[in-house]
Structure formats: C-alpha cells, structure tokens
Design a protein around this nucleic acid. Structure first.
Length: 549
DNA sequence: TTGCAGTCAATATC
DNA sequence: GATATTGACTGCAA
C-alpha cells in the first residue's frame, strides 16, 4: 500500500523527511541498477552521503563526465575520464552519446539549485520530483546544458513524440519520469518547443534530457517498465481498497487522511480555478490588441469592467503575450525548417530564413512594430534575428495581433477598448457585457480579416454565442490544432499558415489554409510591411504618428 | 516594479 | 485515459 501510494502520489523532495526520502533513494538506485537484489543499505538516511551516491549514479550526464575542465568536482566521481579536454560541443556530444542510464533526470531542482538537498525552496512547484539531484548532478546537468551545442528542439520534440506514440507511452509518464515535469508542461513543450537560442538555461534542460533519453537505447524499455510498475501498483491498490477495508470509500479520501499530512486544510485552501468566460476573453483580447502592455490603470479599469481581479487581468496579459510569442517561435521554426531543406529548426536555420517581409506570413515583422518597446526585447537573435528582429519575438507580444490587427487601424487612435468593454455595460449579472467584436475589426479595414478573427476571437467565437462576427473565424478548431502539432509530418510550409491563422484567426483559415498566395494575403502582407515601416520610423524618431492604414 | 520564462495543476477536449 | 489548454505562481532580471 505504501508503495502504491508513493508511486502514484510522490511528495516533492523538499517535503519529505529524511526517512521519507529513503524509498526514493532506493528506487533511484534500483533504477540505476545499483540495487538489484533487494535490500539496500541505504546508508543512513543522512542525505548528504546518500544523495551523493545517488546522484552520481543517476545522472547520466555525470556519467559522461562533462568535460573535465568544467567540472572538476564531478569529474571526481565520474570514472570515465574524458580523454582529453574536448571542446564544449564535443564533450556534450560525447556526453549525450554516453547516456545510457535510464534514470534520467531526475530531478530535482529544476534549477539546479540544489546544493542543499534538503530544502529546495522551489520544490513545491515541482511536483513529481523523483529524486533530487545533488548539487553535483544538478550542476553537471546545467553545465551540460550550458555547454551544449545548439540542439534542434523541434527535431527533438518531434522524435520524442514519435517514440512516445509509437510505443504508446504517455506524456505524463515520460514527463514525470524523464523530465521531472508534469503532463501539462510536457504537452506544451512537445507541441510548442521554443528554438534553442530563445531558451534560458533552465528552459534548455528538458531538451537536453530529452536528447539524452533519445540516445538511450533502452529508453523505451525503461519507460515501459515504469509503466508496468505503475499499473501494477495501481491495480494492487485498487484491489486492496476494494477488497479490503472500505470498499465504497473513495480511495483518495482514505489516502488523504492516512497520509496524515493535512487532511482538510488542503481542500479549504484550494482556490477555485478562474475560468474566464468567452466574452471576458474577447474583451481582454480586444484590449490587448489596442494595448499589449496596458498600464496599471488600464488594467484596473479592465478588471473593474469585467468584474475580474486585477491579478487575473495581469496574469492574462502576461500569459497571452507569452503564448503568442511562442506561437511565433513555432512558426519561425517551421518556416525555417522548411525554407531550407534539411536545415534544422535551429536558429541557424532560422536565421537563414528568407526575408520575411515579402511573404504573407512574413508579416512577422509586424509585430515588432507594435510594441512600444518594440524591438527591444529581442535580442538574441543574431542574424537570425533579422527576421525576427522585427517581427520575431522581439515584439512578440504584439506580433500576432498585429499581424492581423495591425491593419486594424481603426482602432488606432482609440486609447483603449476598455472603454468599450466596459461601456457595454453590465449585463444581467452585473458582469459587464462585452461588446461584440465589433469595433474594430469587423469592419476592418481592407484586407484584414476581421478582428474577430484574432486568435482569441476565434476561440471564443466558437463557444460564445457570439453574435456578429461569427463569420470568419470559426474555422478555428482545425486550425488550432494543427498549429499545436507542428512537428509531424506535414511540411512546414504547409503548416505555417495554419499556425498563423491559429493566432490570428484569419478567416482564411477556415478552409483555405493554403491559400497563401491569394491576393488577399499579399495585400495584407503589403499592408503589414507598410505598418512595420512606419513603426520603425516612428520608433526611431520617437514621435507620435498617425496611424492610418 | 514590471515583464518574462518556466511550470504547475485544474479543467476542457479528444 | 491521454492530451491540450490556460489561469496562477515562482524566480529572475532589468
């Protein structure tokens, strides 16, 4: 029973007592093959020693012994000395290749901070952390990440997805076992991998782990074993709960109490998840289109008008900007890979990507324009950036919208839609009613589709009773999905449009994803280019300009 | 303080 | 049951 419980609901390392950690250490050792026969004398439960030994065993990276140069201390524990100082890329490569240990990652502190096995502060957030890496291992992973040559994140996720699906392995199992991440995170990561150069060290870690896992010849088997074990445990638990004590009682409940932890507090503390109504999202999106970076005051107004907490509005904007940015990354990747055959999605590839501006999507650039900060952010990208420089991430936030919205000049001057939003007055329940998509878009200027089309819009549209706009956007479903699964087979090129559409909810999306050549698209592209140009100009002068498109 | 990257975890969808 | 979506949170940097 304990095993079952532990396997299905492992506590984060930081929450475990020394005694409580012991089973995990044993499991880790077992996974590493160190514990074959039974009892393991986990030496004392002192973490120090135990963790050390564990980590040294578990971390594949360590096995590879990151280049000696960088990790003296680790090297101590790793036997296979690298023959000679290798270049960082070489060492990484060799490490990667070496990885045969199943036990992956393990986790731990995702950030590597783990010097203190005992108390990773952040631990909370990390749910299933099988086993914390000791400071050493964490370091080595990080070092590996830092030294890692550019990895093809898109390619890696693609392969991982293939392997998982081919072998009927779930994201949850993979994430918790190999990456130390939850299912949702894995799903997101696999569906929308960011290009390597856009990732922080921490963000690169999962990709390194995936790469290591892919290189492990026994990866599938190991995962399958885990799966079997889980199933067994589950069955056992089910069985026992049914036949045993209180058959009728929901296992979870029983467990909760038995855990002793804190029975009810949890329930009470749990905050209900906020679910924004379609109209609310719509309003927020509209507001975003006008002002991707609303001022505190605006946020408050929005919150008031929508009857939401300001924190919710703030979070929404953060999330929206960030997610839109990611969508763009994907597009870049797809476009890049496509553009140059063979080229990986790696930045490099990307960089080479043909000038965007011209192409329909090229509009990317547009975004850049938008943001106030515009261009700023983007940095990184070297050359590649070029493309992005403008559009890219740089101004990511806006980008998307812009693309479609940009055109929406209309709103131009308006300070904030908010007004609108709010104005619409509250509906029956006091919640303000959001205006139909109206304002701007619909009537939208020329080429632009209709605002409603915005990504957001389309989503909502689907659900909301929405009135007017209905038209175009509805295409959504299909479109979105496709964007979500970039990887696969479909030719990037082909997909690209769809992802764009998903973002902007371009009407065309509906059926004509391919209609990229259509005149409308071209027109749009031209329009966007013009906008970009103006924005750039304005930015350089810092003077206000009239937005008329 | 603000924005962002990464994630979690609840919930929606498939 | 698996996967996708998304509001919220944490930690970090400017």
């Amino acid at each position: 029973g304990s095993v079952s419980d532990m396997l299905s609901r492992p506590k984060p390392w930081s929450k475990l007592t020394q005694k409580g950690r012991e089973p995990f250490i044993r499991m880790q050792l077992w996974l590493n093959g160190e514990l074959g026969q039974g009892i393991l004398p986990v030496q004392g439960q002192q973490q120090g020693p135990v963790l050390h030994s564990v980590t040294s065993l578990q971390d594949p990276l360590q096995q590879g012994c990151v280049s000696s140069e960088s990790t003296p201390k680790t090297s101590a524990s790793c036997s296979p000395a690298p023959e000679s100082p290798m270049s960082s890329s070489e060492s990484v490569k060799s490490l990667t290749e070496l990885v045969q240990q199943p036990c992956p990652p393990i986790e731990t502190s995702k950030d590597g901070k783990a010097p203190e096995p005992s108390d990773p502060p952040a631990s909370d957030s990390q749910p299933t952390t099988p086993l914390p890496l000791s400071g050493h291992s964490a370091l080595s992973i990080q070092e590996l990440v830092a030294m890692s040559p550019e990895l093809d994140t898109y390619g890696i996720t693609k392969r991982v997805k293939e392997v998982l699906t081919d072998n009927n392995l779930g994201q949850r199992l993979f994430g918790e076992t190999i990456l130390g991440l939850t299912q949702g995170s894995v799903s997101d990561l696999l569906a929308r991998p960011k290009p390597w150069h856009k990732l922080s060290l921490k963000g690169r870690e999962p990709f390194v782990r995936m790469q290591l896992w892919l290189n492990d010849p026994n990866n599938v088997e190991k995962l399958m074993d885990m799966k079997r074990m889980e199933k067994k445990a589950y069955m056992k638990r089910r069985h026992s709960s049914v036949s045993d004590s209180q058959p009728c009682e929901p296992p979870s409940v029983g467990i909760d109490y038995s855990q002793g932890a804190s029975p009810q507090p949890q329930h009470q503390l749990k905050k209900p998840r906020v679910v924004l109504a379609p109209e609310e999202k719509e309003a927020l999106k509209r507001a975003y289109q006008q002002k991707p970076y609303p001022s505190p005051k605006t946020i408050e107004e929005l919150a008031t008008q929508l009857n939401l907490k300001t924190s919710t509005v703030i979070n929404w904007f953060h999330n929206y900007r960030s997610r839109i940015r990611r969508e763009l990354f994907i597009e870049e990747i797809q476009a890049g890979s496509q553009g140059q055959a063979g080229a990986s999605d790696s930045p490099t590839a990307r960089s080479s990507r043909p000038a965007p501006s011209s192409e329909g999507d090229s509009c990317d650039g547009v975004e850049a324009a938008e943001g106030p900060s515009a261009g700023d952010t983007e940095e990184s990208g070297g050359p590649a950036a070029a493309t992005k420089s403008q559009g890219g991430p740089a101004e990511p936030a806006t980008a998307p919208e812009e693309r479609e919205e940009a055109p929406r000049p209309a709103e131009k001057a308006e300070p904030l839609p908010l007004g609108t939003v709010a104005s619409d007055d509250a509906d029956e329940e006091g919640r303000p009613r959001v205006p139909p998509l109206p304002e701007g878009p619909a009537e939208g200027p020329g080429p632009m589709p209709n605002p409603a089309a915005t990504p957001a819009a389309r989503e909502d549209a689907a659900t909301s009773a929405a009135p007017p706009g209905e038209g175009p956007c509805r295409a959504r479903d299909g479109a979105d999905r496709s964007s979500a699964l970039p990887s696969t087979s479909a030719p990037a090129a082909a997909r690209r449009p769809s992802s764009l559409q998903s973002l902007f909810g371009l009407p065309e999306a509906a059926g004509a994803r391919d209609s990229r050549d259509n005149p409308l698209r071209k027109k749009k592209a031209a329009n966007l280019n013009s906008i970009i140009h103006r924005l750039e100009k304005a930015a350089s002068r810092e003077e206000p300009i009239e937005w008329e498109f």
